[in-house]
Design a binder for these strands. Structure first.
Lengths: 243, 243
DNA sequence: AAGTGGTCTAGACCACCGC
DNA sequence: CGGTGGTCTAGACCACTTG
């Protein structure tokens, strides 16, 4: 996006990695990169640290920086990546497939106690219930049920929720969703799952459920997603942090 | 752990925040902190950035750094369960249930090309194949197949792999596993799954597969875990990074 | 205009790895 | 030992927010 020094290096390196320019899986050392691109070593480190946080590379003090082979492998698959975009539409957009949305249900309801707690709502707050079928090239892959407080988006319409709500937020209100707290699990498919997602009875769904937050920490949406099992590939890179 | 400059500030700030020392929810500005603690502004930024990544504070350019009110209000929402998959024995131990391990298979094999790449092995390297059934209070919940290079742990025995390998690593070699790159998905259960995990044919398994790394970045193990679907609950707190 | 966080640089010194 | 990543500093300049 922006034209920052470390960001330029970041995208360049990522491109190179994807293009297989480092067959040994070892990147040039930091001082060389600094020279080659005529930027400070600090900026190089910044770019490399981001790549390391994303699980693209890992660094070994004293020996060098290496590409994570699993990262290369998974790029060719359909996936929901921890380090990428949060909006589901956005996350799956790659691979040149066209995302679609079919609105199944849209109404205003009174949230139960649990939902009120998850979204930090008061007793008199109401929420939208938005149930949508997500597709790729007309192939359904996910049933998504979202709950959004009315007071956050009083202007929601069937029109809007038939597209990407996150995109709408970004474009119309200049707000974006940058944090989420999700629980990932698996379940046998229900009859509805089988019907909508074209599953056989023995085929399961992946379930991703949780809260999406706005930049300022406001809980924006509780969402429950039931995915065709072949389309749920959640990649996650975990570093046990100090504290 | 270490006695680093930014780390000292990090823990100090966290303690102060918990103690309610900033009732306005606004932290001192970076330059003041730099002066007060007699450290560089870069180190201050480093500490603050970590806090922001953890969801403890959020920063507003031009106005200041603020404590996330949700973090104080309901800390349970911000479980850093993100790391709970590291060391499966450890992660599930909490519930007061006794973990058990039944060794299903233990042998030395020649890794195929893919596995060699994932673990950064040469053509003449061999690996252990360790297949184990994990239990809780005698209830089986996971079939785990792990691959560990012989050269990393030449002394492995049936004895050792019948317990927690991560614990052994920690106790005997003072090394620990702090990073992992995993892909989480779901699949219909196979006959073996159904038998070992006591599943009905329509009941699925959750699959977690990927690489565990040692502190120094060495790929330590490739592991493939098939979990009874009711036991796979992966919690993750995601903050959108760069890209 | 003043205050505050963001980016970037140049360079010093340390810690670890492998030959 | 040389090569490599890690930490830290001091300071310059930019971008945004607020009064």
């Amino acid at each position: 996006m922006a034209d920052l020094v470390y960001h330029r290096l970041l995208t360049t390196l990522k491109k190179n990695i994807m293009a297989g320019e480092y067959p040994s899986l070892k990147l040039p050392d930091e001082r060389s990169l600094s020279e080659q691109y005529e930027i400070s070593r600090s900026s190089v480190k910044r770019a490399l640290n981001i790549l390391a946080d994303q699980g693209v590379v890992f660094k070994k003090r004293g020996s060098g920086t290496f590409i994570n082979p699993l990262y290369l492998k998974n790029r060719s698959v359909f996936h929901y990546n921890n380090g990428s975009n949060l909006g589901v539409t956005d996350s799956f957009q790659m691979n040149g497939r066209k995302p679609g949305i079919k609105l199944l249900d849209f109404q205003v309801i009174k949230p139960d106690k649990e939902l009120r707690r998850d979204l930090f709502l008061n007793h008199d707050d109401f929420v939208y219930e938005i149930k949508r079928l997500r597709l790729f090239d007309d192939q359904p892959f996910m049933i998504e049920t979202g709950y959004i407080p009315i007071k956050i988006m009083p202007e929601l319409t069937r029109e809007i929720v038939s597209g990407s709500i996150f995109n709408y937020l970004q474009a119309e209100k200049n707000q974006s969703v940058t944090k989420s707290y999700l629980t990932i699990s698996a379940e046998p498919s229900t009859e509805e799952d089988q019907q909508e997602l074209q599953l056989k009875p023995v085929e399961p769904v992946g379930v991703m459920a949780g809260i999406f937050f706005l930049d300022d920490g406001t809980p924006f949406e509780y969402s429950r997603m039931r995915l065709h099992y072949q389309y749920m590939k959640y990649n996650t890179f975990v570093t046990l942090g100090e504290d």
